[in-house]
């Protein structure tokens, strides 16, 4: 390794340490040169274009790009006593993301607002009776001045119709292959999760 000369022996331990740790080249030719950084995979030259972001100090609001969770109560559902209701820091997307872009969000469906409540329980009973007798929908609509939807939610089809429909359905189901049936069943099972959220 190093030739032991008078000069090296004379140097104290401290100076040796200092010399070994200094980056400047030493006079002695046998000592290895101290590297400025520990060798690693990162190449500063070839990765010069890859700029690292310089972030200012402090806290950041950077929510995950995920669907909002119902655990975060919307401001509309907060009670008046809750300080979050008036806070600008709570759920800022409500103004920045939603309210400003409301005009670009087309309405798909609205809760229906019935205009008249003229049907009584007796009227519905009569409607059911007529429907069982086989009176056509258009006649029923004209007589009671109700919509198609109202007839279907307030009355049920006659037993004959039910039987007929069931027979028809059973015929269709019989034709299903094993795969079709499995796919249909899976679709129904998946639908259950819609209502659980």
């Amino acid at each position: 390794m190093f030739p032991i000369t008078r000069a090296t022996v004379k140097t104290t331990f401290q100076t040796t340490v200092r010399r070994l740790n200094s980056t400047t080249s030493t006079k002695e030719p046998n000592l290895p040169k101290k590297l400025p950084v520990t060798p690693n995979k990162y190449n500063a030259k070839s990765s010069a274009f890859n700029l690292k972001p310089v972030l200012p100090e402090g806290l950041f609001y950077h929510p995950a790009p995920a669907a909002p969770t119902p655990k975060l109560t919307p401001k509309a559902f907060l009670p008046d006593s809750d300080p979050r209701k008036t806070s600008k820091l709570y759920f800022p997307e409500e103004t920045t993301k939603i309210k400003e872009n409301l005009q670009y969000m087309p309405v798909l469906s609205k809760a229906p607002t019935p205009h008249s409540y003229h049907m009584t329980a007796k009227d519905v009973e009569e409607l059911q009776k007529l429907r069982d007798q086989g009176v056509s929908r258009s006649e029923l609509k004209k007589k009671f001045k109700v919509s198609n939807h109202f007839i279907s939610i307030s009355t049920r089809p006659s037993q004959e119709t039910l039987k007929k429909e069931k027979e028809q359905l059973d015929k269709v189901v019989k034709k299903w292959s094993k795969g079709t049936r499995a796919a249909r069943e899976l679709r129904e099972k998946e639908k259950v999760n819609w209502y659980r959220g």
Partner: peptide
């Protein structure tokens, strides 16, 4: 009104609608 209560996503409009309604109820 102008307040968004919940968001729903799905592979059909019906699924997305039902999921959003369920989430709105849960949010309350």
């Amino acid at each position: 009104g102008e307040h968004m209560l919940a968001e729903g996503q799905g592979s059909s409009l019906k699924e997305a609608r039902i999921r959003s309604l369920v989430d709105a109820l849960k949010a309350f």
